[in-house]
């Protein structure tokens, strides 16, 4: 019995450690508050305990006990719903919204991380059971490194070239590069925009990147990230300063217009470069036969 206790402890430790390392404030800015951390750490602990307990259940053998993992999976699906609901409720109060795709991406990540933790706990317990303490620790280290490789996906900088671009007016029409954005009526606002606005042009490196940038959710994510990092002068009664990302229909390039609180062109380019590619926006038409024919 005591032997199994150590198995469970090793699995739980590896799992919990994985969860802690996967939790950090990044460009998603979530969770940025202590109670969010507690919720996720507690759930991570439960997930790892479940993963670790599964090994003694098999060894004993008590195969029916193993089926409780299915129950756990059900529980963790709830986490996705919980995250989605929380983020959707907070969406209204952001000056620049995240967009549904971004929220779905975050919610899915939180669900998936719990499974990752469960798997890490299960395999490190199994390794301890089969190969002793060294095996358990070795497996734990390997699994943690493996899990961390999931932490960062691709970002805009990997698939696109981001270059500073001039913001100017054609009559009352606001333009960034060759892309028309909107008509700004008030002369006072035009003056403010001339003075404070920044623009960048995002050029897709290939056809796949062009298709990804075409996704509106991905473009909202770019505007959201830029406004989080540089701040925005937008307010409820100043819709003129809403960051916008618009596409050049001929080339697939997109331009970002923003009136940041901190006017720093280099920081803006860096922020756009580091915007994560949303899983839901990621498409690879070039991987299909028809896509390859179209690319010719």
């Amino acid at each position: 019995m005591e032997h199994y206790i150590i198995t469970i402890i090793i699995g739980t430790l590896v799992g919990s450690l994985t969860r802690v390392l996967l939790l950090r404030v990044d460009y998603r800015q979530y969770p940025g508050f202590p109670h969010g951390y507690i919720t996720h750490l507690a759930l991570g602990f439960i997930a790892s305990a479940l993963g670790a307990v599964a090994v003694p259940a098999i060894m004993k053998p008590d195969y029916t006990a193993f089926t409780f993992l299915a129950l756990a999976a059900q529980q963790f699906r709830e986490i996705r719903n919980m995250e989605r609901k929380t983020l959707e409720n907070m969406e209204e109060t952001w000056m620049v919204q995240r967009g549904a795709d971004y929220i779905e991406g975050i919610a899915r990540t939180f669900e998936a991380r719990n499974y990752l933790v469960m798997v890490a706990a299960f395999f490190s317990s199994l390794a301890y059971e089969l190969a002793g303490l060294t095996g358990g620790i070795g497996m734990g280290v390997f699994l943690i490194i493996f899990a961390l490789s999931f932490r960062t996906g691709d970002s805009i900088g990997d698939i696109c070239e981001v270059i500073p671009e001039k913001v100017y007016f054609k009559g009352s029409l606001l333009c960034v590069g060759n892309i028309n954005f909107m008509s700004v009526g008030l002369k006072e606002m035009q003056g403010k925009i001339r003075q404070d606005a920044l623009g960048v042009m995002i050029k897709p490196k290939d056809d796949d990147a062009r298709a990804t940038l075409s996704n509106y959710g991905q473009r909202l994510a770019i505007a959201h990230t830029a406004s989080i990092v540089l701040g925005t002068k937008k307010d409820v009664d100043i819709p003129e300063f809403t960051p916008l990302v618009r596409k050049d229909p001929d080339t697939g390039k997109v331009a970002l217009y923003i009136v940041p609180a901190e006017k720093d062109q280099d920081a803006l380019v860096a922020a756009v470069n580091r915007t994560p590619i949303l899983e839901s926006a990621r498409v690879r038409p070039s991987k299909t036969q028809a896509g390859r024919i179209a690319a010719d």
Binding site: G171, S172, M182, S183, V184, G185, L186, E188, M189, V236, D237, P239, E240
Partner: peptide
């Protein structure tokens, strides 16, 4: 235009 747009939280287009 300024007064009306501020009162309505709306945007002025020319």
């Amino acid at each position: 235009a300024l007064f009306v747009s501020k009162s309505l939280n709306a945007m002025v287009h020319d």
